[in-house]
Amino acid sequence: MSISIDEAVSKQTHGTLSGLMARQTFWVFVAFAVTILLMSLASDVFATEKNLYNVFRNFAFVGIMALGMTAVIITGGIDLSVGSTLCLAAIVTSMTMGAGYSVEVGIIAGLAASIAVGLVNGGLIAYVGMPSFVVTLGMLSVARSLAQVISNNQIVYQLGPDANAIMALGGGSSFGALLSPFGASGGIPNPALVLLVLALVAGFAFRWTRWGRHIFAIGGNENAATLTGVPVKAIKLSVYVVSALMAGIAGVLEVGWLGSVTVNLGTGMELQVIAASVIGGANLAGGAGTAFGAVIGSALIEVIRNSLILLGIPTFWQGTFVGCFIVVAVLVDRIRAMRQSN
């Protein structure tokens, strides 16, 4: 009992990189780096500016949504409605702009629609106590159907007077002049920049705010969180709103990138987003996940997809690869956890 307070404070059974999830994220990052290295050697096209630019832009949409999904998964929930929410937000934004409103109004309308979706999801899950799987499965259907109703199931390509502004936002890039000395005169695609900013915000919120602490507590032991006075219902509502808002932001950016919106936009995307989060270390049982992991998970999926194309392997194999990665990532984590408890 001679141990001082300072010693006790600094002591820990495991290293600073403790926590199983930190390690899963680390190994996924290694897999990502190795894939990039091998592909740079195996393909002349992979490491070109144009290809990397496309890779970055493509994974940004899934990455943005994976940040919100990770928050939901940390609390022990799931959000199956993000693909449909993305579509609804894109339809609302494009039709608002097509009706002659400015780009700002269009974006606000799209994001407001996504927030409304999040409030309904979160309200039913947190305050009525329904399972997140059921509620968001219902919303997956409802939101896409609403997008069809609003657009009358037509392609929306009339983006009104501010069409160029939204296309520059979603399809353009930034810092081209700044980065040209490094051979990246195309700059960084805007969706990737948005992802970067949102990932930093999410990473900060998870680690440094009371909200972040509470989402982990709810995922770890919801009953304990309630007994200790954590505002469980309000926090649960908030993660579904955040998830829907991320889908809304991705939807708005997709409008600008594609220049037109169909009601199929984002179909099946929820599975990619969940896959990215899980590969990145989010535990579907709740209580674990990181913002960095969400980004790396999305990047890995996109790099695999891109590699298959460049190597001339039929893209039908993509699902097999991504599926195997999900299982292997979780399996490695399981084995590690079992070793540790022995």
């Binding site: 009371r210 602490r213 982990f216 507590a217 995922g219 770890g220 032991n221 009953n223 304990a224 969180a225 007994l227 200790t228 006075g229 954590v230 209580g287 674990a288």
Partner: peptide, 19 residues
């Protein structure tokens, strides 16, 4: 059942709800 969160540190549990 002690009402603890397994995934958090000892300190985080002590201060849960009173961070």
């Amino acid at each position: 059942d002690l009402a603890l969160c397994d995934n958090l540190t000892a300190a985080a549990n002590v201060f849960l709800g009173r961070e």
